[in-house]
Design a protein around this nucleic acid. Structure first.
Lengths: 201, 201
DNA sequence: ACTTCTACCTAACGGCCGTTAGAAATAAAT
DNA sequence: ATTTATTTCTAACGGCCGTTAGGTAGAAGT
């Protein structure tokens, strides 16, 4: 093997990429817990073993850091949902909808501070950040519009689809306010929401 | 009429009560829009024509002010819902549930910055504030437990009731994230949620 | 050995924060 | 008119904030 793992000079940013990931992870947790405004770069840096100024080697600003955290928050959920849907193309429209719900909720509640940070912080984050997230948010919304549209059938109006999407995403995302993994069970909650969705032909 | 409207000395706090109400109103709007941490007492005071220090004549701290805003947020919704339910005792259990939803949503979306401030800010407000709000929140939850319990019937388990409460409150409160009064209609959205609730006997 | 690049640190800048003590103004009571 | 109570202002306190400029240790490349 005469080739290195990467063709560029030095050993190329192995350390930086790891530090960047750690910063993002801690930032996601802090944003989720305390919110964007109350997340101090000094506290954040301390938790990853740095000084505040050093964060600027990895991110140009607090806003950019938060934007990346929240962008990853959409990405991880969307990847999970899309992946599950692709692996289960044979399901009925209703089953696909329930599968998407279970995947969305599982990712949100057990896996990722990023998505919960996104959901919780979005209303209070600077408008420039919200602006940069519009595209990814719209993309994820369209995933739901698609499966809900198929579930409701060809006679479904856009406003019907929108309303059901808001209802389901609201019922799921609101779980951030009450879900306690010691007491609650994701599958049980998904089932109880799914019971509200009638079988269709 | 030898008696004044109030028996105490002077004319007793007429001005202070009005100023207090105005402070609370502006604070509610600011909390709803920018969040608790980003609400500056200097900005708040400026909007009511005061200096920051003067607020401390009416409230002992920023936390106490926010607590009162959020407490009123529960009160206004609970009063509205309880009032509508008492005025309509003859309805079926399902109709009562839908009526409660419509009242909750109408109050939340068109009337009150206080309730939306509560819902939006609760996750990020200091723990002492959350502690002081626990009682009123539990009281309002019990309103929903009651009407949902009756709707689901005597065979309903507590966890069933809880899950349906979370689903409905989530579907409603999440509307803060998307509702646009120019485009959306409260009654239409309530109806589309209600369509998910089967008739029961 | 010498240079170059990486990843972090030090130290500070200006700015805004919640809060407080005490003075000043306004209004009411006597 | 004088006193008393109410409401607001002034001015500052200590503290934390995001950000930046310039320095530095050490590894990588030559």
């Amino acid at each position: 093997m005469s080739e290195e793992t990467r063709p560029s000079r030095h050993r190329t940013k192995a350390k930086a990429a790891e530090a960047r990931r750690e910063i993002l992870g801690v930032a996601a947790r802090m944003m989720r817990e305390t919110g964007y405004a109350d997340m101090s770069l000094r506290d954040l840096a301390a938790e990853v073993g740095m000084k505040a100024g050093s964060l600027y080697y990895h991110f140009p600003s607090k806003e950019a850091l938060a934007t990346e955290v929240m962008r990853l928050g959409v990405e991880v959920v969307e990847d999970a949902v899309r992946g599950e849907l692709e692996q289960n193309g044979q399901l009925t429209a209703r089953e696909r909808l329930v599968l998407a719900m279970r995947t969305h909720l599982k990712t949100l509640l057990s896996e990722s501070d990023f998505s919960s940070a996104h959901i919780r912080c979005y209303p209070f984050v600077p408008e420039t950040v919200r602006e940069e997230l519009k595209a990814v948010r719209r993309a994820y919304n369209s995933v739901w519009n698609d499966i809900i549209g198929v579930y409701l059938g060809t006679a479904a109006t856009p406003v019907q689809i929108r309303h059901l999407r808001y209802t389901l995403l609201g019922a799921m995302n609101w779980s951030l306010e009450w879900f306690n993994s010691d007491r609650d069970d994701v599958d049980a909650y998904v089932t109880s929401i799914a019971d509200l969705l009638p079988e269709r032909d």
